[in-house]
Design a protein around this nucleic acid. Structure first.
Lengths: 191, 191
DNA sequence: TTGCTGGTGTGATTTGGATCACACTTTTTC
DNA sequence: GAAAAAGTGTGATCCAAATCACACCAGCAA
């Protein structure tokens, strides 16, 4: 739980007392590679803060094709927020790509913490702000950049993911076929 | 300013006193069609709540092609948030498509309000939550749907925009060429 | 009236990337 | 450590959408 405190204090300091309270809403879970956190159609009861490991969140279309909404590693939050906030069934899948430890928080917990502690409301607002601008950047990139450029941008933004994640998933994240990405990649080795 | 109060109270009630305080941070502005709110490279000092009128926010690439990040009408907030939150120069343009009245808020104002009034921090968090999930939906749609489907989804989500906004801009929003959109559109008139 | 400017439809041509198909390598699994 | 599963490279083919090109129409301004 130290990790959690450190994570929160990157944004706002909290007293020991306050943290004792915060702590009570989180539960630790260990997840193995290939295990699902959420699957389409399920009730979404939690959001997750990742302490270690890597996950991918994806949408599965009617033909069984995957489209990656987000990768998440250390200190990232993730959930099917659409479902979580509106208490609907999940429309996304989240699966573990590397053994992980995560902290789970219910919607009730999030809202209670936010109303009990102004600080925590602030914390969540700041986090959302960052997520919002990151998503906007991605939208612009999807609209305006070529696969080539998107691939390079991805590498710059998330060098760590670039190393650890199989290319086929990166392709799904970028919105290109595996083959096309492979060709970009090999044509560029030279330069 | 009544409008502002109503808008805030859709999310959280505020006392007269509180609202008096809130009010002081906003300034009203009237904008004419074709007028720019922000242009690339400028300092971003404000975000805007739209009381009436329609705006479009877009990215302009090196070749002068537009890509629409967002349309905004009544009761929408808009700004180049990337720039606003990080106090950088704008990388986007915002321009008025229909005579408008807007309320302007500085970053200082937003942060001051948030820290003075827990309620306002809450208000902004809720707004961001909605924006976040809407953007995520758009990302999924860009990755997984055909132009045809994206066009239909857009019509469902924003029927009002669909009517008022020239098709060429809708094409830019959807990430298709004007011509392709026009063909989808005319091929579908029949059915 | 006579231009402009901005938006729109629609044909012809081109093209980037998807798809299909297969071989090869690496990692997992029991 | 053998078999299966997962990931990758690369050629051949195909196709949806971009691009180019032009005609038309509406609204507005001089």
């Amino acid at each position: 739980m130290d990790r959690l405190r450190k994570h929160i204090e990157e944004i706002t300091p909290v007293s020991d007392e306050e943290f004792e309270h915060v702590k009570t809403f989180f539960t630790l879970k260990r997840i193995k590679k290939h295990q699902y956190l959420i699957q389409e159609g399920e009730q979404v009861n939690f959001e997750y803060l990742i302490l270690s490991g890597i996950f991918r969140m994806f949408y599965l279309d009617h033909e069984g094709k995957e489209y990656i909404v987000q990768f998440a590693g250390e200190n990232w939050w993730m959930a099917d927020y659409q479902a979580y906030f509106n208490e609907k069934k999940a429309s996304l899948h989240i699966t573990c790509m590397e053994d992980a430890e995560i902290l789970c928080l219910t919607l009730y917990g999030r809202e209670k913490l936010s109303s009990d502690l102004h600080k925590m409301e602030h914390f969540f607002r700041v986090k959302l702000t960052k997520g919002y601008t990151a998503q906007q950047r991605r939208i612009i990139s999807l609209l305006s950049s070529s696969p080539q450029q998107r691939y390079e941008e991805f590498g710059q933004l998330y060098p760590h993911m670039m190393q650890k994640i199989p290319k086929k998933y990166i392709a799904e994240y970028l919105g290109v076929s595996r083959e096309t990405l492979s060709r970009l990649y090999s044509n560029n080795k030279g330069k």
